[in-house]
Design a binder for these strands. Structure first.
Length: 410
RNA sequence: GCCGCCAUCGUCUAGUGGUCUAGGACGUCACGUUCUCAACGUGAAGAUCGCGGGUUCGACUCCCGCUGGCGGUACCA
């Protein structure tokens, strides 16, 4: 049985890069009909942040990366102490300033085959130093708790960030001394920012939750995250989580550091907004606290709005701009004159009820005869440079909306 | 400094010795469609495959060196 784990440390809200590690673990588990375990590694008491732990759950839940089992390391202290005791009996550790240190071998080398790139990684043991397994406060270190737990929980594949490569020799030696089966290691290249440096706050250093609050939808976030460093064999990029599970393979994960591309994430979001069937519901959920937008979504015009907005949104936040009826700027003198002229024409031609197609034809006619671009006409009819179509606006607001804008008292 | 990993269009990448005058996607630009803006469609620009040596009849693909980037070097994970 394949078993993997996502083992975040609740010292801060995990950013999108860390969350991608969870995704890859999840995909790998599902692909192999295995188990996905969540393990909170909270052995650093000084840096522990309660909010961060909550955020981890919230992120995984929002994305639908549900775990089969969950463990919290701070609840397992006696286990680590017990295993430290075993090492003590074997003379593999020694005390130093109240901490327990593991003796690393100083000859030979430590190596393993990494599943990313299918390559051997080896370290000369002479470069390795003894390391603390039990801190003086009684808590285990990452290096120790991690290995003990991975073994006890039956983890078969350790899929984690590349930042752990250099501590892997420690883990390998621990497996050796315990005579435990070593899992397969897969170290994912860390995601970089636009400047090839660390992910900055305005790029992917945001958490999935922040993206969610900006109006990104889970399908897009999941889809883009998967594609940072992984390419499906068929090259088809937009895909559901089910499709990702079907196609995922560690051998297709690239071993170079990818750069996070916010623009592509945005594009995916737009593409997914146009794909999902329950856009209205997503908008309702998103605008829970926005009374104005909420009213529109609850009105009998909501379908028209949603359908018209669908192709004009990249993120859910864009809906509010579309829906906003406020005039963008004042009209120029020339625009006012033209507006007046158009209004007179519409009055004459359309009568009491402004029928959509007829309205449009009249405007087109006006546009051609007066040699005024439709963009300009759209502007002084709606007060905005761009937005949903005249036909839709007519259905939503009726002629009063256009008349008000054409009269322009502002 | 030392240790490890990596290196194809601006970005994500395909490519596993000849099919590559290097393919796709995002972005950019143009055109088309069109009631504005989008969306959509078509096309274009964009990579001397980091550099230098090998190996080979032949290298983006294999080997070595260099350079550069990243990661690690904690009683953090």
């Amino acid at each position: 049985m394949i078993k993997v784990r996502f083992a975040p440390s609740p010292t801060g809200v995990p950013h999108i890069g860390n969350t991608r590690t969870a995704l890859f673990n999840f995909l790998f588990a599902k692909k192999n009909k295995g188990k996905f375990i969540l393990r909170i590694e909270d052995t650093d008491r000084k840096r522990f942040v309660k909010e961060a732990e909550k955020a981890i759950y919230e992120i995984l839940e929002w994305l639908g990366l549900s775990w089969d089992e969950k463990f919290v390391q701070s609840e397992r202290l006696s286990i680590y102490r017990q295993y430290a005791q075993i090492l003590k009996k074997r003379g593999a550790v020694y005390e130093s300033d109240g901490a327990l240190k593991f003796k690393m071998p100083k000859k030979g080398e430590t190596k393993w085959i990494d599943a990313i790139g299918q390559k051997e990684i080896s370290f000369k043991n002479e470069t390795q130093e003894d390391f603390v397994i039990l801190k003086s406060d009684g808590y285990p270190t990452y290096n120790f708790a991690n290995v003990v737990d991975d073994c006890l929980m039956g983890i078969t594949h350790v899929i984690r960030g590349e930042e752990f490569v250099s501590s892997t020799p420690k883990h390998v030696q621990l497996y050796k001394i315990f005579r435990w089966n070593q899992p397969v290691f897969a170290h994912l290249p860390v995601i970089l920012g636009k400047d090839k440096g660390k992910l900055s706050k305005r790029e992917g250093a945001k958490s999935a939750l922040e993206y969610r609050d900006e109006g990104y939808i889970r399908e897009a976030v999941l889809n883009y995250m998967a594609l940072v460093g992984w390419t499906p064999p068929d090259g088809q990029e937009q895909m559901s989580i089910e499709k990702m599970i079907e196609l995922f393979d560690l051998k297709d994960v690239n071993s170079a550091n990818p750069i996070f591309d916010t623009q592509k994430l945005e594009w995916f979001n737009g593409a997914w907004i146009r794909t999902i069937k329950d856009l209205k519901k997503r908008l309702v959920d998103f605008y829970q606290k926005d009374k104005k937008v909420k009213n529109i979504l609850n009105s009998d015009k909501s379908e028209i709005w949603v359908n018209a907005a669908k192709s004009r949104m990249k993120i859910l936040k864009d809906f509010k701009k579309l829906v906003d009826a406020k005039k963008q700027r004042k009209y120029s003198k020339k625009e006012k004159e033209r507006a007046k002229k158009l209004l007179e024409l519409l009055d004459k031609k359309l009568g009491e009820d402004w029928e959509g197609e007829k309205l449009l034809l009249t405007i087109k006619d006006f546009s051609v005869k007066e040699r005024i671009s439709f963009a300009e006409i759209y502007f002084f009819m709606t007060g905005k440079e761009q937005g949903i179509g005249i036909l839709e606006l007519n259905k939503i607001y009726g002629k009063e909306f256009f008349i008000k804008n054409l009269k322009d008292n502002g």
